[in-house]
Structure formats: structure tokens, C-alpha cells
Amino acid sequence: MPEQMHLAFMTFSVLKAPYGDPSVQEFDDRTPDTFAEAESSDGFIDRAKPVEDTAWMTNYQKDWGRWGPFAVPRFYPGGTSSGSSYQAQTLSVWRDLHSVWTFAYRGARHRSALKQSAEWFGQQDWPIFAAWWIPAGHQPVWPEACARLEHLHDHGPAPHAFTFKSAFDPQGRPCRPNAKLEPEPA
């Protein structure tokens, strides 16, 4: 019987201004409801959350527990020190590609935020997300996610890291993210 696979999914964007700036406050205000929408979506398994979410701490200062130390891709212009933060990133695990695609493009709150993303984010010369298959039970960590996004940027979509436009199934075959994948016969 084939090993059960889940989908790891990282998003990464750079805000036009640091958190706390009025020009990006609406994005920050929407975040809790969007996370709640994701967590209640069919196929959602888990997402990176700090052990204790203290608002005054930067992501670098927070304890991310089993998600590992916080990390950003090499193309983040803000560096890795504490202080003002411009990065907006997530790391999550989903049952399958269809589930995260459905949340991203059919979830009311997320879809609405996507329509306004140009107000909050500047032009980015890297992929804003990467997806990859993991064995069920594997714990993705921030440094691993950054490496996958960087690989996608450097080499393009492949089973190692891919996008919705150029997606792969758990066996490495091209697939469509908006189609439910049927499990392989046992």
C-alpha cells in the first residue's frame, strides 16, 4: 500500500510597509479571520503558530515549537534581525492539493484579501508560495519551507516544489490543483 502523503504549503510576500503602519493595517486586521477560515476548511491539517503568541515579539523572537526556528527566504530584503518586519508568511499542512487550492480561491475571506493584495504588497520577483508533498506525519519546519521556495525560484516548478499553475501529484506526475485526486488503488 502506498504511503499516505499530505501537502506542505508555504506563502511568502513582502509588505509595502512594516506591520503597524496604517497603509498595511487592514491586511493585519484581516489575518485572524483568514487563519480561522483556513483552519475550518475541508482538508486543513495544521499551520505554524508560535507556542505563545505575544504581539510585541517579532517572529524571530517567538518560539515556533515543532515548526522550528523562524526563517525567511534569502530574497527577503529586511534581514533576519529583530525589529520592524515586512514579511507576511505562512506554513501549513493540508490533506491534498485540492483542499488548499479551494481555500485559496474559493474561501470568501482569502479570496477577498487576494483581490486587495496589490494595496499591501509590492512587486515581487520570486514565487509567493510553494507546495510540496510530505509523508503524513512529517513535520515541515521554517528552514525547510524557505529552501523549497528558493528551489522553486531558482529551478522552476518540479515535484520538489511547485505552484498551482504547474502542480504535481504525490507520484510526481503533473496534475490540476482544482481536480480532486483519487487515491491509487491498493
Rank of each mutant, 00 (worst) to 15 (best):
D96V: 01
L91I: 04
A17R: 12
W132Q: 07
P50F: 06
Q124G: 03
P127T: 05
Q61H: 12
Y86I: 01
W133D: 11
W126V: 07
W94C: 00
V72D: 14
Q61S: 09
W94N: 09
P22V: 11
T80R: 13
D53E: 13
D63P: 10
A104M: 15
W64P: 02
A36F: 01
T54P: 04
T31H: 13
G79S: 07
F129D: 05
F27K: 08
K49P: 07
W132I: 05
Q116Y: 01
W120I: 00
A118C: 03
W126C: 02
D29W: 12
A108P: 15
F103Y: 12
D29E: 12
L114Q: 03
E119V: 07
V24W: 01
Y60S: 09
G20L: 08
Q61P: 08
Q25F: 09
A104G: 04
G79R: 01
R95Y: 04
W120L: 03
A113K: 01
P77K: 06
F121G: 06
Q116P: 00
R47Q: 14
T58Q: 06
P22E: 07
T54K: 12
V100C: 08
P73R: 05
G79K: 07
F75L: 01
Y86L: 12
G68Y: 08
Y60L: 14
A48R: 04
S81M: 05
S92C: 13
S84C: 06
D42A: 08
Y105I: 11
T102F: 08
Q89T: 13
W126E: 00
P18A: 02
Q25K: 11
M57Q: 15
Y60C: 06
A104K: 02
L97H: 03
R66P: 03
T31Q: 14
D28V: 15
A38E: 04
V93C: 12
A118D: 08
Y86W: 10
E52R: 10
Y105L: 15
D96S: 12
D125T: 10
V72Q: 15
S81D: 15
R95A: 03
E119F: 05
Q124W: 03
F129T: 13
W67R: 02
A113C: 02
A55I: 07
V100W: 03
V93A: 07
R47A: 15
G20F: 09
G83C: 06
F121R: 07
G107Y: 01
Q123S: 08
D53W: 00
F103R: 00
V51R: 07
A113S: 10
R66G: 14
L114S: 11
D42M: 05
D63R: 02
